Simulated assay, not measured.
Amino acid sequence: MTRFAFHEVSPKLFQAQLAVATELGDAPLIEPVLRDLIECRVSQINGCAYCVRMHSDSFAKHGGDPIKLAMLPVWQSADGFSAAERAALVWAECLTRAECQVTISKCHRMLLDHFEEAEISELTCIIATMNAWNRLGIAQHEFA
């Protein structure tokens, strides 16, 4: 059930939000399957069922491992996640939960072994954009 349709009520704002998301998909530095994984995890943390469903479907379409997706809520204690994926997930969780600056610095240092500065910038934008979409999704959709 939808409470309101953001894209209809505020089409200019929707287009601006969509433009950022689209730009992230054009010649990405972060591979689509990792982006999907991050977007799923952020959406899980935020409790946005609509976005979890959408990005789970995208993860599958991009060839993501279904076991990895099933283990995503417990990734910290699960096998099958690469060191780079773990660093990206730590960063996603840290920013989504708005940790203190000391923790954010610690999480950022973990990224440096696996990602270049431009990749970290893109990853950060993916996380920020997903958090914005989650808030919009939560506000709009009573059920997914």
Rank of each mutant, 00 (worst) to 15 (best):
H55K: 07
R86A: 04
G47W: 15
R35M: 03
L69E: 13
E23A: 13
T22I: 10
A60N: 05
L111P: 03
A128R: 01
D26K: 10
S58T: 08
Q76C: 14
P28K: 13
N134A: 12
L18G: 00
V20F: 10
S105L: 06
H55L: 07
S82I: 05
V20M: 15
P32K: 15
E117D: 12
S77W: 07
M71N: 05
K68G: 04
A78S: 01
A98R: 08
H108C: 09
A27Y: 15
E142Q: 10
V52N: 10
A84Q: 03
Q17Y: 06
L24K: 03
L69I: 10
E39A: 08
A5Y: 05
P32G: 09
R3G: 11
L89F: 04
A92I: 10
A139Q: 15
L112Y: 06
V74K: 04
W133E: 00
A21C: 11
W91L: 09
V74L: 08
S58C: 05
S105W: 06
D36G: 14
F115P: 07
N131P: 02
D57C: 04
L136G: 08
T96N: 14
V74I: 01
Q15T: 02
F59D: 14
H62K: 12
R97C: 15
C51R: 07
H108V: 02
W75Q: 06
K12T: 04
A21Y: 05
S82W: 03
S10W: 03
Q101F: 12
A60T: 12
C107R: 00
R135W: 11
G47E: 10
C94F: 14
A87T: 04
T124R: 12
L18W: 02
A88C: 10
E116H: 00
L72M: 04
P32D: 15
H62A: 11
Q101P: 07
A92G: 01
L37C: 02
I104C: 13
A60F: 13
L112C: 15
A19F: 06
M110W: 11
L13Y: 01
L89M: 04
S56C: 01
L72E: 07
A5F: 00
V102T: 15
A16R: 08
E23K: 14
A144F: 00
A139Y: 11
V33N: 12
L72W: 14
L72A: 14
A70N: 12
T124N: 03
V42S: 06
E85Y: 10
C107T: 01
C40D: 01
E39N: 05
A88N: 07
W133L: 01
E31M: 13
T2H: 03
M71I: 04
V90D: 12
C94S: 09
R109T: 07
A88R: 09
E122F: 04
I120T: 08
G80F: 06
G80C: 02
A5S: 02
C40S: 06
L112N: 08
A144W: 06
A49E: 03
C94L: 13
F14W: 06
D65A: 09
A16L: 08
H7R: 08
Q101T: 12
W133V: 01
A88P: 09
S121V: 00
H7N: 08
D26W: 11
I38T: 02
G47Y: 04
I30A: 00
M71T: 11
E31F: 14
F115S: 00
E119R: 03
M71V: 02
L123W: 10
N131H: 06
S58Q: 13
A49V: 03
D57P: 00
L34C: 09
A60P: 14
